[in-house]
Design a protein around this nucleic acid. Sequence first.
DNA 1: GTTTATAAACGTTAAATTAACGTTTATAAA
DNA 2: TTTATAAACGTTAATTTAACGTTTATAAAC
Lengths: 230, 230
Amino acid sequence: MTYNHPKIWVAIDCLVFGYDTFENNLKVLLFQRELEPFANDWSLIGGFVNEEEHLSDGAARVLEKFTGLKTVFLEQLHAYGNTNRDPGGRVVSILYWSLIKLDKLNREIATNHGARWFDLDKLPQPILDHKKMIDLGIEKLRQNARNYPLGFELLNTDFTLPQLKSLYDAIYGKSIDDRNFRKKILSTDLLIKTDKKDKSASRKGAFIYNFNTAKYELLRKEGFYLDLSI
Amino acid sequence: MTYNHPKIWVAIDCLVFGYDTFENNLKVLLFQRELEPFANDWSLIGGFVNEEEHLSDGAARVLEKFTGLKTVFLEQLHAYGNTNRDPGGRVVSILYWSLIKLDKLNREIATNHGARWFDLDKLPQPILDHKKMIDLGIEKLRQNARNYPLGFELLNTDFTLPQLKSLYDAIYGKSIDDRNFRKKILSTDLLIKTDKKDKSASRKGAFIYNFNTAKYELLRKEGFYLDLSI
DNA sequence: GTTTATAAACGTTAAATTAACGTTTATAAA
DNA sequence: TTTATAAACGTTAATTTAACGTTTATAAAC
């Protein structure tokens, strides 16, 4: 005991956004809390931080438990630590957020852990300050869409321009002008056009694109300014 | 004891940027640590979070102790919680940052607490991960300069355009084109020109401006995009 | 009282970008 | 052969930007 001071519980909450390429919409992962207080209410996925565990490792542990996913986008967002935020005791909670593509496997794992994917506009009332956390995440998502490339985390390797536009529509919460969107996104040198077409959504079919990974990672690091909302 | 889990020390670190309107440069407040380990080394100002204290209140307490200032810009930046970040024990530290104007009073209070203001380009090697924290703060400062109005926190009520430009020069770490800077900053409707002049820096004197507080606060909330770096 | 030095203020423009539209094409089904 | 429609491609006036050039106000030097 080197420091002489009272300690505090430290927890992790993970805000996980999933994109559904069939429904073309964004979802949030919530689970039905098992512990009192608030047993059976909907909560972000989370857990306490262990003594011998980095914060980021704790977040990764929580995420993997509920989705089976490792090595995906997972970043810290904010620390919540009001004295009265949890009636169960003084808990400082570190919020992380993650962006993933929904697929059969991670849906199944979520279900097996009492978790469910909710459409962004059909969320139940979550416990504690978790609504605030979700709102912060949505804000951050929009900020990210403006300042960093986005889509790699949320779309399949193969995707079409209409799909990418739908993702941005979902993030911005409105329908973007299709013609301007194309010109802007193509001007970034982020996309590689293939000669394959995806005909699942139209008779004509849409060309399949991939991300230019090198350029994507560069801009993810450096940031840029790209307003795709008009 | 409602939750059955080990607890962790939670601390606050405050990264305080101060702008010196005489020297026209940015400084960071560091203090000479009293506790072992690392006694006498330079550290961000900080302290442990009390059991019955909000995180933000803890940050405000630390800031006031070292500067005498309340009700200034003070925001959370990041939580640091690697298991090995402090050889004194497992400490999760919540980093806050603050922007203030340097004056005689807060300089004196800092000195009385063993703290000193260091020029951004002449920082000593700080303890633990505090260098990382400072780097994050500088990054955040530049990000802020691009996405929010800035200056109110760092300049006196009365300031001149050359002074405001010097602040942006300091943040961006380079000299901005004066003519473009004027046009861009004036186009935001953030500044109110007075008919007074400040002749301390030139024969001709520079007109004194004030911030349009209403507009400033609006844009601080909403954000905008304004690249003043060219 | 005329000149000088210089920070501060003001001005110009070619080029690039943007927002807001219009048009054509490929395809499966009718 | 026609039709419906998503996908792809195109146009342009208006605005914004980056990169410069010019004038002005003043105290100090001569």
